[in-house]
Simulated scan of single mutants.
Amino acid sequence: MSLYKKKPVVIEARQFVGDNANLYSIYQWIEQNTAGSFEPLAVIEGKVPCPKSGVSIDPRDGRMMIATLEGFHHVNVGDYIIRGIKGEFYPCKPDIFEATYELFQ
């Protein structure tokens, strides 16, 4: 078995702190850099496939949803939203984020 080390990369990230201004700012950031907003209920109910990218709000509980190649992911308060090296967006739990990334100046 071989051992591997993660390559150092610089990513953009923002933490969702739960207030409306923060939600709006992150939503706009994702919307402007992806395929945009999508209809959440049709995706949740399986009537249409999840888009490859985009953002929406789950009408059942008000949580932000991010569309990824693996499907949609909900964003919870405290999660970091990462813009990856290929421009993709996804949420990351705070403990994983803090163990994986450090502030780059």
Rank of each mutant, 00 (worst) to 15 (best):
residue 39 E to H: 12
residue 102 E to I: 15
residue 72 F to S: 12
residue 9 V to L: 11
residue 19 D to Q: 05
residue 27 Y to R: 02
residue 75 V to S: 02
residue 17 V to K: 05
residue 16 F to V: 06
residue 62 G to P: 03
residue 8 P to V: 12
residue 48 V to I: 15
residue 83 R to C: 13
residue 29 W to Y: 00
residue 5 K to G: 12
residue 104 F to L: 06
residue 51 P to K: 04
residue 100 T to L: 14
residue 59 P to N: 07
residue 33 N to F: 11
residue 104 F to M: 11
residue 47 K to E: 13
residue 97 F to N: 08
residue 36 G to I: 09
residue 36 G to V: 08
residue 82 I to S: 00
residue 17 V to I: 14
residue 26 I to P: 01
residue 63 R to L: 13
residue 70 E to M: 14
residue 72 F to K: 10
residue 12 E to R: 07
residue 99 A to C: 14
residue 60 R to G: 06
residue 9 V to P: 03
residue 63 R to E: 12
residue 93 K to P: 14
residue 28 Q to I: 08
residue 54 G to H: 04
residue 33 N to P: 08
residue 97 F to E: 07
residue 41 L to M: 15
residue 34 T to D: 06
residue 17 V to R: 14
residue 3 L to D: 12
residue 40 P to N: 04
residue 11 I to R: 06
residue 105 Q to N: 12
residue 97 F to L: 01
residue 4 Y to E: 14
residue 86 K to G: 06
residue 44 I to S: 00
residue 44 I to K: 05
residue 36 G to D: 06
residue 20 N to F: 12
residue 45 E to A: 08
residue 51 P to Y: 03
residue 66 I to P: 01
residue 32 Q to F: 09
residue 69 L to A: 13
residue 83 R to Q: 15
residue 92 C to I: 04
residue 58 D to G: 03
residue 27 Y to S: 01
residue 58 D to L: 08
residue 94 P to A: 05
residue 14 R to Y: 00
residue 61 D to S: 01
residue 94 P to S: 10
residue 67 A to S: 03
residue 56 S to C: 15
residue 10 V to K: 13
residue 7 K to N: 15
residue 8 P to C: 09
residue 82 I to W: 02
residue 75 V to E: 00
residue 76 N to M: 13
residue 62 G to S: 13
residue 6 K to L: 15
residue 76 N to T: 09
residue 1 M to Y: 13
residue 15 Q to V: 05
residue 65 M to I: 09
residue 74 H to F: 15
residue 64 M to K: 03
residue 22 N to E: 00
residue 103 L to E: 11
residue 84 G to C: 06
residue 65 M to L: 15
residue 24 Y to W: 08
residue 46 G to A: 04
residue 56 S to E: 07
residue 97 F to S: 09
residue 74 H to P: 13
residue 102 E to L: 15
residue 31 E to L: 12
residue 57 I to F: 02
residue 6 K to C: 12
residue 15 Q to P: 01
residue 64 M to R: 01
residue 68 T to F: 02
residue 38 F to Y: 09
residue 83 R to V: 10
residue 74 H to S: 14
residue 29 W to M: 03
residue 12 E to F: 10
residue 33 N to D: 09
residue 39 E to F: 11
residue 62 G to T: 03
residue 12 E to H: 13
residue 84 G to Y: 08
residue 6 K to T: 15
residue 25 S to T: 07
residue 95 D to Y: 09
residue 102 E to Y: 14
residue 97 F to G: 09
residue 55 V to A: 06
residue 56 S to Q: 08
residue 84 G to N: 13
residue 82 I to P: 00
residue 82 I to N: 00
residue 89 F to N: 06
residue 81 I to L: 08
residue 3 L to C: 04
residue 58 D to W: 07
residue 51 P to M: 02
residue 16 F to R: 03
residue 4 Y to W: 10
residue 60 R to C: 07
residue 48 V to Y: 07
residue 54 G to Y: 02
residue 101 Y to M: 03
residue 10 V to M: 06
residue 69 L to D: 10
residue 66 I to R: 02
residue 75 V to C: 00
residue 99 A to T: 10
residue 55 V to E: 01
residue 55 V to F: 05
residue 51 P to T: 08
residue 47 K to M: 10
residue 22 N to S: 07
residue 53 S to K: 06
residue 100 T to Y: 03
residue 8 P to D: 07
residue 41 L to N: 07
residue 90 Y to N: 06
residue 48 V to L: 15
residue 27 Y to C: 00
residue 92 C to N: 01
residue 1 M to H: 13
